[in-house]
Design a protein around this nucleic acid. Structure first.
Lengths: 161, 161
DNA sequence: TATATTTGCATAACTAGTTAAGTAAATTAA
DNA sequence: TTAATTTACTTAACTAGTTATGCAAATATA
């Protein structure tokens, strides 16, 4: 590990390091669910969390909240439907909309799933121990990117020569 | 942005936030290279950096340094070869090994590419301004994960109930 | 009220990673 | 010195995201 090129490169490898960590956590989570014989995907817990606050959601609401593309949401949601965790109904007043709700199966499984997610939350707390300010730093970073994104900044910095 | 579920969820959404940021940067970088009409991929600059220290590399050396899988390295390297940025030769003493070297085309293009990477480095510095300690925090986080990974921690925390 | 624009969802093709499984060469051990 | 193991690379199938494009319904506008 001492000879880790990512650490040497500092700023230049920042994105690659975020990717390396998030990929590692993602594949760990997939592996975990497999071992626990749970037929769910790692990103579903965020969807479940949204349903805690509102029992009916649309694709667009989820895409907005997660800031991912609509096609990405459609894939996640269709898989949840296929595995019978969600029910789709057409909106009576706007037939373009798919109204999404948790199924009975989802609600039945919720207590078991919440135990796993709580253990996950604790695990992240352990991993971040002593470095909790990273969460506020991520806020700040996303804030900076929303003001001017990476591409725009590079183009600006190229001109400044 | 005030209503961002990821920020509310704190620890539970940590991984998703890392992914969101790194994906955003990745697609920005791809878009940037396209606009600048450079036929290179965002992750190539790390490979080029490795060639600064050693002019001949193998697939395995790259996989170890980046901590990504061999198949991932093969894909990156084959594309660099296909675009004529790399030359492959078989190791004379160990015919399993592919020796990789930068091509003449790569060396010619290097000054132009390095300008872009330097502007990229500056851009990351801007984005991280005031939050530079995130780099050490990422070190610490990777260190924690290497001691006990996410999956192992969740399994442990599930037992502790 | 006909037309133009916007919104919500869907599909296709692509990308950068993964795991699983396999082959051939090199090395180690009986 | 044969057999077993390890190493270096490869291929196939999968995953979770992206952009580009399209369509139909709803809304705004002339």
């Amino acid at each position: 590990m001492e000879n880790d090129i990512f650490r040497e490169l500092k700023y230049l490898a920042f994105t690659a390091r975020l990717k390396r960590i998030s990929d590692n956590m993602l594949y760990n989570a997939k592996d975990l669910y497999k071992e626990l014989e749970l037929d769910i995907d790692p990103n579903w817990h965020l969807i479940f969390m949204m349903f805690k606050e509102k029992d009916t959601l649309t694709m667009t609401e989820i895409a907005d909240a997660f800031q991912i593309s609509q096609p990405a949401v459609i894939k996640i949601i269709n898989k949840m439907k296929q595995k019978e965790y969600l029910i789709f109904t057409k909106d009576a007043t706007d037939s373009r909309k798919q109204l999404l709700q948790l199924s009975a199966k989802a609600k039945e499984n919720l207590p078991k799933l919440e135990k796993v997610w709580e253990a996950g939350r604790k695990s992240i707390m352990e991993i971040l121990e002593g470095n909790e300010t990273i969460l506020e730093q991520l806020d700040e970073i996303e804030n900076q990117i929303s003001k001017m994104n990476y591409k725009q900044r590079v183009l600006k910095n190229l001109q400044d020569d």
